[in-house]
């Protein structure tokens, strides 16, 4: 084995949570396979710091990658991989992970597995386990090309503790050629995590009835525990929440530690997006609602009565 290479994403010079999460898992896998861990960083970021989480070498591709283009990212990653010669590449299943990484796999003529929720070492190789059919079925993916590429769903692995020293940084020169140009970037003015990365989510359903109620009940409840707001499609279709906030088969797939479903029935298409949440709390006044079959804790109650009390209890508990 010539090692496991992780793609470390960063924004404005700070590494994303996915970078340390992948390093933690890669370190475990490398120990089982008797190999080492390296990382690739595009552009300006404190590359040597990744040593604290187990990267021995960091390949840092020079240039400005602040504006994203999948072809340019493919050029840069391919150059780093040519130098590092890894057997395995792990990348986050972020927007770029789902856009540039398959392009990279085609460039390198190798196979890849998308959005794995588990990785294990077996027979001297890494095997990825991943959901299919929106999580109704799971399968193992084995890859015969080199490198074997896996993208990983956020929050699938725990954050490693920092230790170790600085990584050695190898500068990589790449001719990264963008085929598109970003003209404008519109980011929502929010400080909470994106749904797909969020650790806590509070979602509301059709039962909220109006955007006013959704704003008055769900948003402050979410804010009380720093959670990201989610919604069922019924709530989105009724104009109570934005489409970006939709959880489910035709919305976002989420994987938080805590998912609170307020007045959501638990339709199969909604479950498809959130069933891997570690702890699910359901508040629904119908004791027969399907969501209860999946809920760690169920409250058969009126959400309008529960929400303010729960919010007060959260605020007290976290103060």
């Amino acid at each position: 084995m010539s090692g496991i290479l992780i793609v470390a994403e960063h924004e404005g010079g700070s590494f994303k949570k996915s970078a340390t999460e992948l390093l933690g898992k890669a370190t475990q896998l490398a120990a089982a396979l008797g190999t080492s861990v390296s990382a690739v960083v595009l552009g300006d970021a404190p590359a040597a710091d990744l040593g604290k989480y187990g990267a021995t070498t960091v390949y840092q591709v020079g240039g400005d990658f602040s504006s994203y283009d999948p072809a340019a990212m493919t050029d840069a990653l391919a150059a780093a991989i040519a130098q590092a010669q890894p057997d395995v590449v792990l990348a986050p299943a972020s927007y770029a992970g789902k856009d540039a990484i398959p392009r990279l796999a085609a460039r390198l003529d190798t196979g890849m597995a998308t959005e794995c929720t588990d990785l294990r070492a077996e027979g001297g190789a890494v095997v990825g386990r991943r959901p299919l059919f929106a999580g109704k079925l799971y399968g193992d993916v084995k890859i015969s090309g080199k490198p074997a590429i896996f993208t990983v769903r956020a929050n699938s692995f725990s954050q490693p503790a920092a230790g170790g020293g600085a990584a050695s940084v190898v500068a990589v020169a790449a001719e990264a050629k963008a085929l598109t140009k970003v003209l404008e970037r519109k980011a929502p003015s929010s400080t909470v995590a994106d749904l797909t990365e969020a650790d806590r989510i509070v979602s509301g359903g059709r039962s909220l009835k109006t955007a006013g109620d959704f704003d008055a009940v769900i948003r402050p409840l979410a804010a009380s525990i720093g959670a990201t707001v989610g919604a069922s499609r019924a709530a989105v279709d009724a104009g109570m929440a934005h489409h970006n906030e939709q959880v489910g088969q035709t919305g976002k797939t989420v994987n938080p530690t805590l998912y609170i479903a307020m007045g959501i029935s638990g339709a199969i298409q909604h479950l498809a997006g959130m069933r891997t949440s570690k702890v699910i709390v359901a508040v629904n006044k119908d004791p027969e609602a399907p969501i209860f079959e999946h809920a760690t804790y169920g409250l058969v109650a009126d959400l309008f009565e529960v929400a303010p009390k729960l919010q007060a209890a959260f605020e007290k508990a976290l103060s």
Binding site: D109, T110, G111, M112, A113, R129, P131, L132, G135, K136, L137, Y138, G139, D140, V141, K142, I143, S144, G145, R275, T276, I280, P287, F292, E293, H294, A295, T296, Y297, G298, L299, V300
Partner: peptide, 18 residues
């Protein structure tokens, strides 16, 4: 080059309670 095997049900959730 990517082969899926070992199909199975989603990982089971610990049983919840009301």
């Amino acid at each position: 080059k990517a082969v899926t095997t070992a199909y199975g049900a989603p990982p089971e959730r610990p049983k919840g309670r009301k």
